[in-house]
Design a protein around this nucleic acid. Structure first.
Length: 589
DNA sequence: TTGCCGTGTCATATA
DNA sequence: CATATATGACACGGC
């Protein structure tokens, strides 16, 4: 069975005999000879050392990535956010796009070989996975890896050609796979028919999110990252387009029917199926965590599809941006980032990134552990009520977002533009609804795991609000965010009311103005009438005066001259003929 | 490209 | 003093 091993200097013949004796004693127990083999153990030790070295190299690589990412970002002094250096991005984008074009074998035509119905079927079945129940929750707990980086390392170690430590450019395999997969999805969803499918997906998920919220439990598991890995494997060069199509359809149709809306989706088995789908495909490359998050979103119907559909991966044109330009949390939906620059800058490296830029996040240095609420007994119910907050793809349950923030400022990567959330489908009318539905504050709340809705935060009366707040333990960042959300929410309503009042006032003033104009016209007309009647009365009075005056005669029987005399009336009603020269003297009297 | 409009947000005053 | 409300000013996106 065993060939005689060359005795080492440290191993005397007595030692070898002793080993043989011990082995013979244990051989019935199934112990192999290698157990007693010093060389074997030494080899194992060396292997372990190599693994450790590799692990260290991975960590070093990770740090270098972050450094490179820092180099691509600049700190916005106003917002405290990291923003990409504008000039670099387009060039890099173009370059990487070209690289992708040459490296990715899937042509658009290939993807388009999938009929719309097939695509619809695939994605429809994918998202018909109902809200995961507790079974899936269990699955989550059991499948949950320790952390994304570790997962990533595991993947890397399983690779035939481990990624060497080095700079960004020295990790083509990982980045390429990421790009390939994202590209595949971009192309898949760039099919015009699938644009409207986005909306269907959204609606389906909306249904699951809002009608079954109470039954929703956490199902997010990074293991689902591998869900779409066939995309990166099937689309290898030696696969024809028809093979791609059929394989893909077969993959989904063979895997998904066993999953209904009430059954927990066994991601692990699902992935196993996929990974073993085509044994000819030897170059099975693991996905990065980042891509995995995208896939996780796709796979989990509990996931926030807003993030998904906001994801630029589905149109590949713009950056997903949960960026908060002026205040609050700046969250990059990098899980689905497809921009080469973005991918290169960090998201491709498999970390969900979180960015907090204003007062909300200024306290982020608080102990990460405190970021987790300590819910009351009814936490589950209260929690699931707004579960979508906690199912954000970038809210990892086993990694602390603050920690990630602290170590990976890359979260600031690639805000497409300063300002509000920008729909990935900039010209997609459907997304404006999503955008409207998920405000920035909601996104912030998701990031910080706020266990109740923004609506509650804003609209609850003070007492109820305080009562609700007392049920949880929040860290300072969360408290600040909640405070700001409430303030902003109330101010938003106040501003709306204010504007409405202002408009009402304007309308009212305009109405008053019209009324006054009408009144003025009316008064002017009335004044004209009065003037007319007044002039007529004056005429009549003059005629009457002259009639009376002409009847007056002096002692000679001569009429008085109207130039020398005038008729004047006293207060008592007596009328006198007064010489005009004496008129003044009479008045004086 | 420019201007207008609606909206969210902030700062500040006031209740 | 804390909170809510009101409002001017500003930024931003859409048209």
């Amino acid at each position: 069975m065993m060939e005689i091993e060359m005795p080492l200097p440290l191993q005397s013949q007595q030692d070898m005999d002793l080993i043989d004796i011990l082995w013979k004693q244990d051989i019935d127990l199934g112990v192999s000879r290698e157990v007693f083999d010093y060389n074997q153990r030494q080899k194992e030790n060396e292997l372990e050392k190599q693994k450790k070295l590799e692990k260290e190299r991975q960590e070093q690589l990770q740090k270098e990535r972050e450094k490179a990412l820092y180099a691509q970002l600049q700190l916005d002094e106003e917002t405290g956010e990291f923003i990409p250096i504008q000039q670099a991005a387009p060039i890099e984008t173009a370059a990487v796009t070209q690289e992708l074009a040459s490296s990715i074998e899937v042509k658009p035509s290939l993807v388009h070989d999938l009929s719309f119905d097939e695509c619809l079927k695939i994605l429809g079945e994918t998202f018909q996975l109902g809200p995961a129940n507790e079974e899936s929750s269990l699955a989550y707990q059991t499948l949950e890896p320790s952390d994304p980086i570790e997962t990533n390392q595991t993947f890397l170690q399983s690779e035939p050609n481990p990624v060497p430590a080095g700079t960004l450019s020295s990790i083509p395999a990982e980045g390429e796979i990421m790009h390939e997969m994202n590209q595949a999805w971009e192309e898949l969803l760039s099919i015009p028919e699938l644009q409207c499918l986005n909306n269907e997906i959204e609606n389906m998920v909306d249904l699951s999110m809002y009608t079954n919220q109470e039954s929703i439990t956490m199902t997010e598991t990074p293991d689902t990252y591998s869900f779409l890995s066939p995309l990166s494997t099937i689309e290898k060069p030696h696969e024809s387009s028809t093979v791609f199509s059929s394989d893909l359809v077969d993959t989904f149709t063979s895997s998904l029917p066993s999953v209904n809306t009430n059954t927990a989706f066994n991601v692990e088995s699902f992935c196993d199926d996929i990974f073993t789908l085509d044994p000819k495909v030897t170059n099975v490359v693991p996905l990065t965590d980042n891509s995995g998050q995208l896939l996780n979103e796709l796979l989990n119907d509990n996931v926030d599809i807003t993030d998904l559909s906001l994801c630029k991966a589905f149109n590949g044109n713009n950056q997903p941006e949960f960026n908060d330009s002026d205040s609050g949390v700046s969250v990059n939906a990098s899980p689905c980032a497809t921009s080469p620059s973005q991918s290169m800058s960090g998201s491709v490296y498999g970390e969900p990134h979180h960015s907090y830029s204003d007062s909300d996040m200024e306290d982020m240095d608080s102990t990460p552990e405190t970021a987790q609420q300590k819910p009351p007994d009814n936490f589950t119910a209260a929690f699931t009520e707004d579960t979508y907050f906690t199912l954000s793809p970038f809210v990892s349950h086993d990694t602390d977002p603050f920690d990630i923030e602290a170590h990976t400022p890359s979260a600031k990567e690639i805000p497409a533009s300063p300002g509000y959330s920008k729909a990935p489908f900039a010209k997609d009318k459907y997304l404006s609804r999503q955008e409207a539905r998920f405000t920035r504050d909601e996104q912030r709340a998701k990031v910080l795991n706020i266990p109740f809705s923004v609506d509650k935060i804003v609209n609850l009366p003070v007492d109820n609000f305080n009562e609700l707040m007392s049920k949880y333990q929040f860290n300072e960042a969360q408290l600040a965010l909640i405070r700001d959300i409430r303030r902003r929410g109330k101010n938003k309503v106040a501003a709306q009311n204010c504007r409405k009042r202002k408009m009402d006032n304007i309308v009212e003033l305009e109405t008053d103005l019209d009324k006054l104009k009408y009144e003025k016209e009316k008064l002017l007309a009335e004044r004209g009438e009065y003037n007319n009647s007044l002039s007529q009365l004056k005429k009549k009075l003059g005629a009457l005066y002259m009639e009376v005056f002409n009847k007056l005669q002096d002692e000679n029987g001569q009429p008085y001259s109207p130039h020398e005399y005038s008729l004047q009336q006293t207060k008592e009603g007596n009328i006198f003929l007064v010489p005009k020269t004496k008129k003044v003297s009479i008045k004086k009297e």
